[in-house]
Write a protein that binds this DNA or RNA. Structure first.
Lengths: 115, 115
DNA sequence: TCCTTTAATCGATAATCGTCGATGATAGAT
DNA sequence: ATCTATCATCGACGATTATCGATTAAAGGA
């Protein structure tokens, strides 16, 4: 796998992180990574081509959101742990926000009786 | 003051909110609004012209982050309360992240003895 | 050595964004 | 009726971004 670079933790900025997260495709990627596991590109089911997905990955990597670990011909991706130190609770709040809330689930149910 | 429009709460999306917050100027605006009070444009000290500031305000408004309340010739701006219902804890996490953490303050102190 | 796989990079294109100065709209004051 | 203050809108510009298909790099397997 090709060489990939990560920014040092001290030059990760909030604006850049939020900007990186402010895209539906990248939000979906982060949502998948939210399980704390490492993932490969095929794990992210997004409606874009491979090169575009790779580009989004670079955006997240450059922003300091994800970590890319090349191994053999593959590249394992995970959430970058330093993010929690720098911006405590931020990623959690974002991940919680990607899940429908109780009131939204109720609204989606409409008037249905519970099964 | 001219008529301003706000999106209905149910069409505020996470990606759009994060994208709106992912800019240093707008982050500064939100930081000022973090005191929970209403503010006028002159309260935001940002290195851009008036028309650009107004444009950023529109971006935040369209994303559902802020509320604009025209009164007379002025326009009071505040954080939009529905945001907390939709994405609980998100704005708080962002606002906390705009403030330097304890470890960062210690680092900035360098080896200095405390006064 | 050649083939396959995975993912980064390149070059191109269209769309979006941040910025500015100028103008316009609205309300209040003189 | 005019002037002034506040802020939204307009038109233009350059910069950045999202996207694609094609290519390249690196490693593994045949």
């Amino acid at each position: 796998m090709r060489r990939v670079v990560h920014p040092p933790a001290d030059q990760i900025t909030l604006a850049t992180v939020l900007s990186a997260l402010g895209d539906p495709i990248r939000l979906e990627i982060v949502k998948v990574l939210g399980d704390g596991q490492e993932h490969l590109q095929p794990d992210f089911v997004v409606p874009v081509g491979q090169s575009t997905l790779s580009h989004h990955m670079k955006t997240l990597r450059d922003a300091g959101v994800v970590l890319s670990r090349p191994e053999g011909t593959r590249c394992f991706v995970s959430l970058r742990p330093e993010l929690e130190q720098k911006f405590p609770g931020l990623l959690d709040a974002v991940l919680r926000s990607t899940r429908p809330s109780a009131v939204e689930r109720a609204r989606a149910d409409g008037g249905e009786r519970r099964a």
